[in-house]
Each structure stands twice: as C-alpha cells, then as structure tokens.
Design a binder for these strands. Structure first.
Lengths: 340, 340
DNA sequence: ACGGCAACTCAAAGCGCTTTGGCTAATTTC
DNA sequence: GAAATTAGCCAAAGCGCTTTGAGTTGCCGT
C-alpha cells in the first residue's frame, strides 16, 4: 500500500493525504481524521527511501566506527549502545554504524555526510584538537560529542562527565587519609578523558603541596593485562605509591592481581579507587575487596546523547551547549588510612 | 555532481553513463573508460537514496537489537562487531542497528523488512524454535544466524561453533584426569549455545558411565556476580564437584573469587575450564592461575557473518548451508588430577 | 543492393514521496 | 454587492537513480 493507492481509495489527491499525515495545517480536521484512520486501517507506512529522496532526511543517526585488525572496540561501547537504543527505540530512530579504517576516518565521515545516510552523528572518545569534530562541524551535519576535545577554535555540543572533578575528589580523599604518594593508572593519554583525569589528580596533589610525579603515571589501553603491568611497575618502585587511582574496572582487575602477586594487600598496603562506568557484567562491589569508585553510568549518557541528537535533528535544539555530569564518589573497602 | 550533470558533460545519455558505471555489457569499452574516468575526475558518487528508491537495494545489513531497561547487551557483541566491521569496511557496507522492545521484536523485524531498510539481516543468540528465524525466513529477506536454533521445520544458513564438541572434550579431559563429578556453570538455558554445551558435558560423562546431575548445573546470565554465586552454591554442597566447566570468562572471574573465598584452591581443590570468546580486555592466561579454555574467536565469526551476508546479497551464496567451527581446547594451569 | 544482425546508444517511464504554485468556493471586509 | 481573503484541495514538478523498449549505426552474407 503506497501513497497513490491510499489516496485513490480515499478519493483525495496524494498531496492532501501526504499533508494530512504529516500534520500540515492546510487540511481540514475532518479530512485529516479520515486520512489517518484509513492509513491505520490499511497499515500504510510511507516508504522511507522515497521520503529520503524527496526530503533528504534519513531518520537515522550515525556513528563512524574505527575498525582494523589492531583496533579493539571498547566494551564500554555496548553499554553506551544500550542507553542509546533505549531512547531510540521509542522514537523509531535507527543507528547506522559505518566501519572506517582507523587510520583514515575522514573518508568515511565525508561519505556518510555526502550520501546523506544519516541526519546526525555522534562522536566518541575525542582527543585533543579532535579532527573529526572539526570536520563534522565544517560539514554542517548535526552532531553531539560524547566527551570533550580541547584546543578547537569553535564551540560544539557535547555531553561529558566531570572527569577532572571525579579524579580530584578521589585523590583528595586519599590525601585526607594520609597518603602522600598517589599513583595514576590511566587510559590512553591521547584521549581527553585521560587528560582531564590526570589533571584532577594533579590538582588535588598540588592543593596539598604535593606534585604528581610522572613516574607515578601509567597511560595504557584499558585491559586487565595492562592494569596488571602498570600496577606492578608502580608498586615495585623504590618508594612506591601507597594509593592508586585507576581509570577502569578492567584494569583494576589487573591491579588487584598485581597487588596479590606482590604479596601486598588492599587496603592494608595499597588503597585503590577505580572509575566505574557501571557494567552489568562486572561490579566493583564484587571485587575481592569491594572497590571504592568514581561512578557514572555510561548507559545513561548513551540515552542522553540519543535524546539530544533527536532534538537537534528536529530543530528543537541548536547552539553548542555542553553538558558536564557530576560523578559519584562511592566509598567501599578498598581504601584505608596510610600507614604511619 | 549528479548523473544528469555528468552525462551532460560527457555528451552521453544518463542511461549509458549509468550502464557504463554499473558494468553492463551493452556499452563499448572505450565509452566505459571515458565515463569511469570522468566520474572519478568529478568525484561523482551515485546518490544512495535515489539508487535505493530505484532498485530497492539498501547497501546495508541490519541487526535488530533487543533493548530495554532490564536488557543488557552482552559485551561479546563488541568483539563480534569488530569482526563484522573489519569485513564490512572494505566493502562499504554499513550496519543498521534497529533497537527493538525485547518483548516484541517481531514488530521491528517487520518494519525493517517492509521498509527495505537493509538487504540482509543477521540474527544472534538464537533460542530453541527461534521465532525470529521463522519470521525472517518467511519474510524472505537474506539472513544468517550466528548460532543455531533447534526444532525448526526448515533449514537456514548459519555459522556456529561446535559448542557441544568443545564442552564434551573439556569434560572428557577432566574425566581423564580422574574427576568423577563435574559442575557446569552455563549461560541462560534458553539459548541454544547453552543447551549444546550442557549436552556436551552430559555426553562425556555418559561415556564414562556417569551422569550429569541437575544439581551440578547452573544456568545464569553470564556476569561475574552470577559466576560467583553459582560457584559458591556448587562448591558448598555436601559432595561438591571437583571440577567445573564454565561458559564465560566473566563468570570465571566470579568462580575464581568464590574458590578463594571458600579457602579452596585452583587447581588443587577445583579444576576449572572456561570458554573463551577471546576478548582483548580479559585474557585467560592472565588469571591468577592461568585458565584452561575452550577457545573460539567471536571476532572471526563476526567477519565471516559479514562475508556470507555480502555473498547472499549479491547472489553468490544461497541455500541453507550451516557452518560449524571447531573449538580449540587450550590447556593451562587451572586443571589437575583429582585428589585420590 | 538489400535484409538481417550485432553493437551501441537514447528517451522516457518508473520508484514513492514532498512541495510548489495554482484553483475553487466559502467567508469576510468595506 | 463587489472586492479581497482564506480555507481546503489538487495537478504536476521534482528528488536522482535504474531499466524498459526503441531506435541508430555499421557490417555481413547473399
């Protein structure tokens, strides 16, 4: 059943039927009712391809997904996706994942935009002076960044969590507990979230007259194995930190293992605070020693990104508003006062 | 630059240009060369919306993604996606994720197919007599199932790993080591992969004149926490199993924690073999005691699904061929002979 | 020299929708 | 009561591609 047939059965023109269905004012309420009713009865649904061709609107949001043999998609992504899906489902919004060569995402961005495959894009895991943001900004397609970039000479819409605040507060708490040396096991240092977190730790230390020694920082891809290695190398140093803040739960698994391998204990020898993105499959409260965390649901962020993307598409939102969400600091058994 | 403009600059009709570009035979090689050359020079790319409207082909593959507040996307999904993306990237194939109410996926499937949003679908995590497979089969869109269903009265194309064989072999090895009682910590029992795995364990036990006691089985959503609970309840029983086979690495984390909490040891008191889907962020060799595993890369499966989907779209593949991949059995330190 | 046959090329008709620019009849305005 | 609005509807022109059906050529055999 297409528009032509429907309008034929109604004895109306395609124009009128189309307008009635799309809520245009120049059609009488009675006619509109008839049309909507008939459409429902016949199960009419406009063909999206045709609509796209006519309007240029795709009814989909896009994500350019870096891939490659050496590229791993972060498991955080599924949780983000859950949130995005939660919102999108209620709005018949689909998500298009366009796989891109991680070394050349620009081509894919250009293709996606030129083809008008999607009405809006979201960008994740931004770096400093992120080229994708500049590109997408210039291409003029609606977008939202999940995270923040720095050093761009224009504003852009984003949602991010207060990474600096979170790690500042975590570090401050450790200092209040008497720790003087805090190690940071961070994610990939080119990512802004990692930069902000480091800044937070650094600021807290400075406030206590201390400094964050580069030797106490590890920036690595966030896997269990890397967490282990980082923790070992930190803790085996001559004057090792007595406390560690760690950027992910997966890495914290490795930290816990390293502490154990070194015959140390948490929190007796080492206090540990981890960031927790809230995964269903791995919870900080179920660690051998329940983990203190800075907590923020990445799933909620996904839903919010979808919501704002939808708003931008329909013109309800514009401008470059940035949202920064506060982060919970949840205290559990993995921290204790520093040994005198 | 569209077809019309391009054909104008070439002094040819749109027909000829279109045919030349799409490799039709009724155009002279010289003309074809000229056309292709001009297209490249002008950066001409056919508008996919228009092409879709004309051909009905979307150039995308689809996945109906169950969502909802109570629904968690499995982290396995990102690895599968990595594989899918790896293949799709080289073929300019995009993936459309259509979020669906987990309680009513049918509506979404129908919409996606009726709208011709995608050329093919893939279905994951099938159950027995899976309705989605029956539906998609009936709707007549190309598809591939990742996994297998049972009890359907028609054949369908799939790719799956040999879950039964894997768990059979793992169990047999444990029996050869002298274990008489093997516990199974499985995934959701409605999923066919879990059914097959149970069958594998059961068959191996039977071959040794033993039976798989229902008390030794746990079927749960595969999280660390559930793994912990399952292991505790298994090991706290009066005559507890001396060996456990476990369906996921995340659950195995919980198993390891439970064993430790009970003051037992691996492999001294309990031997453990886990299935490993090969995640970058968590590796069995890095467990406190390196884990023996049944191993199969879910990422490779993703790439293969994409490849076969592409083949089906272009008509290179048809029929209902099923592929069953063998699974490696990798022995590491987590298993030992049973105590006499 | 003419019909037949390849080998090429083209104009035009879709695909199913939105949107522009009327048109008619009913209502309002002066 | 004539002129000006306005409400409601419509025919037709796109959107940019593919594909059908119909020519043109040029060359061959007879």
């Amino acid at each position: 059943m297409n528009l032509k047939q429907l309008s034929l059965t109604l004895g109306l023109s395609q124009t009128t039927v189309s307008r009635a269905l799309n809520g245009y004012p120049e059609v009488s309420e009675e006619t509109r009712r008839r049309v909507i009713d008939a459409a429902k009865r016949h199960g009419y649904r406009p063909n999206p391809s045709a609509r796209r061709l006519a309007t240029g609107k795709a009814g989909m949001i896009g994500y350019v997904m870096p891939t490659g043999a050496a590229v791993d998609i972060d498991p955080h992504f599924v949780e983000f996706l859950s949130g995005l899906g939660d919102y999108a489902r209620g709005h018949e919004l689909d998500l298009v994942l366009s796989p891109a060569d991680a070394a050349d995402e620009e081509t894919t961005y250009r293709r996606v935009v030129a083809n008008k495959q999607v009405d809006a894009l979201y960008i994740s895991a931004p770096r400093s002076v992120d080229k994708r943001i500049a590109l997408v900004h210039q291409l003029g397609i609606p977008f939202i960044v999940h995270g923040r970039s720095e050093g761009l000479d224009f504003d852009y819409p984003f949602i991010d969590i207060d990474n600096e605040g979170a790690f500042h507060d975590a570090t401050r708490l450790l200092l209040q507990l008497g720790h003087r040396r805090v190690g940071l096991i961070n994610g990939d240092e080119t990512q802004t979230f990692a930069i902000f977190r480091e800044r937070g730790v650094s600021r807290a230390l400075s406030a206590s007259g201390l400094t964050l020694d580069p030797r106490d920082i590890r920036s690595v891809v966030m896997t269990e194995e890397n967490g282990y290695r980082a923790a070992r190398s930190l803790l085996e140093a001559a004057d090792a930190p007595t406390a560690i803040v760690c950027s992910s739960l997966h890495m914290s698994l490795g930290v816990v293992r390293a502490v154990r391998d070194l015959n140390l204990s948490i929190p007796g020898d080492v206090s540990l605070i981890s960031h927790d993105d809230v995964f269903p499959w791995l919870k900080p409260e179920n660690f051998p020693v329940p983990l203190s965390t800075t907590r923020s649901s990445i799933r909620a962020a996904g839903a919010r990104v979808a919501e704002r993307l939808a708003a931008r598409i329909s013109g309800l939102e514009d401008g470059a508003r940035g949202e920064v969400w506060p982060v919970d600091l949840v205290v559990r058994g993995s921290i204790a006062g520093a040994r005198p």
